[in-house]
Design a protein around this nucleic acid. Structure first.
Lengths: 204, 204
DNA sequence: TGTACATCAGTGAACGCGCGTTCACTGATGTAC
DNA sequence: TGTACATCAGTGAACGCGCGTTCACTGATGTAC
């Protein structure tokens, strides 16, 4: 019916978003150029505007896509931590060396957080939605949030802030012994936090 | 003796570093251009290379300068928290609305952390030194790090990660109620962390 | 006292390059008759 | 069966702009004689 197989356009669209999502986490907002993304997909830059009205639309879609997987990851971590009865396990996995190294496919919150305040509203909204979903999955780990009496959404923001702050820090410092210290302390802190919340007052 | 008063060159140099240090935190590494910095100082871009061999040298100096004040801030916060006997006080101050708003003169660790992995080695070293000094001052707050038996440096990395992660997150999300939730949870978490460390086992 | 020259922080035009965006075009296919 | 035309994802030259960096120059002052 047309030159390209049915769904070809959609496939290309998805490939652009996927490439943008990886490049964004690795190179940041400014250095993720339209031309670089299109090149990664195997196309030329001119074709871009058949898929998006402008760069911001692509970046917004890329942030959405990056947060597609993230909450699932945290859901799995929370579940395993509960099975083990150790919240520190979440930090152990989340801050593992291979997670520190793989930025392009890693946690978007850690990769993007300090650049977000200067992005367009649409991008911030996409980030907020994704971060919130992530915080909600993390809240399913026992002891990371105090129960709200009003039944409002449980979101483990403090634990998320510590984890993503630590991952970002570990990527930022070149000294591996400091990285190790950060990881150890965060595992320990997360464990303490969970125990302190599990037992709201001094035990009898 | 010369056209310019003695020390004029040094004053200009310091002004460039100060402007760069503020712009860097606000706009990030890519968008802090040589021309913008020089304009902020009231000069033209051509004169820049009489002060620095290249942009990286300026950025390195700017990171150093940004971390000049940061540890002092944390030292003051730790001291006050100890006086109050409440580690949560640190988060209360550090995450106050006016700190969230003032990025250019705020915590460089929070402002720069997720961009650092793609910066030159010299810049990462400057960041690492500054972050370490900050973590050391934060460790002076009671209960934020477990005593090391070998007497090694005490650095409160977990607390620092949580604080800077939270500050960055609060700047990233547009919804003020989420911001408020993050702050409340982090204050609470820091308090719990300090209490858990103060009392290493279940109290008698 | 007056003229020629040295000093040097800062100026502004110019360089090659990559950016986001536009647009006339390509070329493989399907459809009409 | 064969020719003319429509479709449309992708191409690549071009636009104006800002980037980091270079460099011949400026112009106010001090020094030499």
């Amino acid at each position: 019916m047309v030159r390209y197989k049915t769904g070809h356009r959609d496939k290309t669209h998805a490939a652009i978003v996927a490439a943008a999502s990886a490049l964004l986490r690795d190179k940041g907002f400014s250095e993720t150029s339209v031309a670089t993304v299109m090149k990664a997909v195997g196309l030329t830059h001119g074709g871009f505007y058949a898929h998006f009205p402008d760069k911001t639309a692509m970046i917004t879609a890329a942030v959405d896509e990056a947060f597609e997987e993230s909450p699932k990851n945290f859901a799995a971590l929370s579940k395993m931590a509960n099975a083990k009865g150790d919240a520190g396990f979440i930090a152990e996995k989340y801050l593992a060396d291979e997670r520190v190294a793989r930025i392009a496919t890693g946690c978007p919150a850690a990769a993007l957080v300090s650049e977000l305040h200067r992005q367009p509203e649409a991008v911030q909204q996409a980030f907020q939605t994704g971060a919130r979903a992530t915080a909600r999955e993390l809240a399913k780990a026992d002891g990371l949030v105090t129960d709200e009496p009003d039944g409002s959404d449980r979101e483990a923001w403090a634990a998320l802030a510590m984890l993503m702050g630590a991952l970002s820090l570990m990527r930022a410092v070149p000294d591996p012994t400091i990285r190790e210290t950060i990881r150890t302390q965060v595992i320990d802190a997360l464990r303490k936090l969970a125990l302190a919340t599990d037992a709201p007052g001094p035990s009898p």
